[in-house]
Design a binder for these strands. Structure first.
Lengths: 187, 187
DNA sequence: AGGTTCATGTAACCCGTTACATGATTTC
DNA sequence: GAAATCATGTAACGGGTTACATGAACCT
């Protein structure tokens, strides 16, 4: 059976929050910071069909007095399990290099499906992978930076600063979760 | 005639620096910060074939005494023109939202093909688009941040900080080019 | 009556991924 | 002589992009 695409996981995370129609999902991709996903019907409706075929979501047509009918999708038990499996994977160096956006997506819905302890483990893993990867970029800059034209050097610099910013973010996220968990325990 | 993919432009930029073989290009994608591109032969060799069919690169087989022969690709005049056309496009809001990586790629090879004035125009345009886009993300955080679970809020925060970091980078790049151009003029 | 928004789809095309395949040369 | 590296390809598959298509309800 085929695998779930990044878009597929975004859809799973959104229909977990509440049952939604294809149109709802398109609006979210068009109007919120999830705008980095395409809101074209040609990507979303086929993706929903695939997820339903795989048994990860199910749909029913909602009849609404006066209003147009629409097809509402909701998550199944196996869809929730697949969502969790995907989120629980260890953060790898490869994720950090090739799939940063997907990492953030995995994290964005994590509290709602797995709770703060899993989220804390995730950002901790991310912090470690970033701390391990960034030095290799710095080394490259030191070795070859002198020979590069200014635009090349600056482009490399932008990559390094992007990862450094992410590392700083991960560290502040760790603290935020440590605080939250401590506070919860004291209630 | 079909268009050039992001990978295609990366290849054009690299063979502009010097003639290179498919294997050279794979090694660059495997061992340098351009590692965010895939180094699989199944992407690179077909991409090179497409570029050659489009007349943007040309190849000759290099015979090397003792060493294996390899196919060296070099940029054609029309390839250089296409590379420049792609790089000279105005930076749009859509670029900033959907194609940040491609923007950096456009910039990375810009000094070598177009010179510092074009690079300065590019980072200036990028700075403007970022400065215009970021407030809409901040607004979203202010409106909906309170209702979001911690992981969602943090994920949004990471996006905002990423764009803010890029904005700071763009401003420092603008200064770097202004200095460079001033110095050049005084020689 | 006409334009906009709501709402859901299909189909062709392209390209990246993954896996398979081959053979020469260098190194140990 | 075996393993690693050099070097170049092909083929099936899947999914995203773009464009096309349809129709109901709402607003003016």
């Amino acid at each position: 059976m085929a695998e779930v695409s990044t878009l597929g996981y975004a859809l799973l995370g959104l229909v977990e929050q509440q049952p939604r129609s294809g149109y709802d999902l398109r609006k979210i991709f068009a109007n919120t910071p999830m705008i980095s996903f395409s809101d074209s019907p040609g990507s979303i409706y086929p993706a929903l069909q695939r997820l339903e075929k795989q048994g990860l979501i199910r749909s029913r047509v909602e009849e609404r007095n006066g209003l147009r009918r629409r097809r509402l999708f909701h998550l199944t038990a196996s869809g929730l399990a697949e969502l969790k499996r995907w989120q629980l994977q260890l953060v790898t160096r490869d994720d950090v290099i090739h799939r940063v956006d997907e990492l953030m997506l995995r994290f964005a819905f994590m509290d709602q499906s797995l709770g703060p302890h899993a989220s804390l483990r995730f950002v901790t893993g991310l912090e470690q992978q970033l701390a391990a990867y960034i030095p290799s970029l710095r080394e490259h800059r030191q070795k070859y930076g002198g020979d590069m034209p200014l635009s090349g050097r600056l482009a490399l610099e932008s990559g390094i600063q992007g990862y450094e910013g992410l590392l700083a973010w991960a560290r502040s996220a760790i603290k935020a979760y440590q605080n939250q968990i401590k506070v919860r325990r004291n209630i």
